[in-house]
């Protein structure tokens, strides 16, 4: 592999900027919701101003306790989690997290979760007029909460309804629907989100998985099941991003096991306009910077002036 090399004199200066839902992003790299908090902890490793966008952990109307522990476990080239969307609720989020992010020059995508359509609407409404929020990502795909979330994302009719109702409360804010891979046809779900008026879709959330301790004869996670993420699921993400992006006209944010610039580029060639780095933030806190540099190197190497020429170019 020839990426991550020193530049030479005649090299082009590639343009990594992308436009999505009417917003310009300086590069196509963001982080996957739940793997980066609101950037507070990682800001000592990563220059947040260099990210294309920062996607926050899911925010709900009220504080959520989440699931009992153990909540996480490692799996081959990945991990499983069943956090259960623990979060302090939108009031604390606005007061603490958005106030922190205000100091940075990075578009903020706020991930929104809820147990009911009304709860999603309440959060969307609170954030619709907030200038510190660039875009909303609606989580209809978390496999780890017992009511809400994934139920809205596995039924096309419900997905369309949640989309249009969130959209109607979002004012001028673009709304992205985050989709689950735990469906028979990702294309049908992407179409439902588009029909509901979504400005884009993001995929994939984690794959529902299970791990058993053979000596204790017990489930490893207290929740029994958890969401599988990490490099192990990357090829699934590439396939689903390809299928979804060919089924709809709205843009796709691709994610799932991105561990390198090569992985990110694969998702973009499959049709993603932006990509998100997830679990690998835990392994290498400064990995996003490395991936952005690697994409730039690839463009120099392949003499690609505009990143838009890569999107869907497979």
């Amino acid at each position: 592999m020839r990426l991550y090399q020193e530049k030479s004199a005649g090299d082009i200066e590639p343009d990594l900027g992308v436009d999505l839902a009417g917003i310009h992003f300086r590069n196509p790299v963001t982080v996957a919701s739940g793997t980066f908090g609101s950037g507070i902890e990682y800001s000592r490793f990563v220059d947040l101003n260099k990210l294309g966008a920062l996607t926050t952990k899911g925010v709900s109307r009220d504080p959520w306790e989440g699931n009992p522990t153990p909540r996480v476990t490692e799996t081959p080239s990945g991990m499983m989690n069943a956090i259960g969307l623990q979060n302090p609720g939108v009031d604390v989020f606005i007061k603490r997290d958005l106030a922190f992010l205000e100091e940075f020059d990075v578009p903020v995508i706020v991930n929104v979760c809820g147990h009911s359509v009304g709860e999603y609407e309440a959060v969307v409404e609170r954030l619709a007029e907030d200038d510190r929020v660039a875009m909303l990502e609606i989580n209809v795909s978390c496999p780890n909460v017992s009511c809400g979330a994934i139920q809205f994302g596995t039924d096309a009719g419900m997905l369309m309804e949640v989309t249009s109702r969130c959209k109607s409360k979002a004012g001028s804010k673009p709304v992205i629907m985050k989709l689950t891979p735990n469906v028979t046809s990702i294309s049908d779900m992407a179409k439902a989100a588009e029909a509901g008026g979504a400005d884009g879709v993001s995929l994939i959330n984690t794959l529902t998985a299970m791990k058993i301790d053979i000596y204790k004869k017990r489930f490893v996670l207290a929740n029994k099941t958890g969401g599988l993420s990490g490099p192990a699921i990357h090829p699934v993400a590439v396939r689903m991003v390809y299928e979804a992006s060919h089924a709809i006209k709205i843009p796709v944010i691709g994610m799932g096991g991105v561990a390198s610039a090569e992985d990110a580029l694969e998702l973009m060639l499959a049709g993603a306009t932006m990509v998100a780095v997830g679990m690998m933030n835990f392994t290498e806190p400064d990995i996003t910077g490395k991936i952005i540099r690697g994409i730039k190197d690839y463009m120099v190497l392949t003499k690609t002036e505009h990143i838009r020429d890569i999107i869907g170019a497979v």
């Binding site: 739940g34 902890e41 952990k57």
Partner: peptide, 12 residues
């Protein structure tokens, strides 16, 4: 059990 060790993932 931890994933990030830095207070981000809320696993522990």
């Amino acid at each position: 059990r931890m994933a990030c060790g830095l207070g981000v993932c809320l696993g522990c």
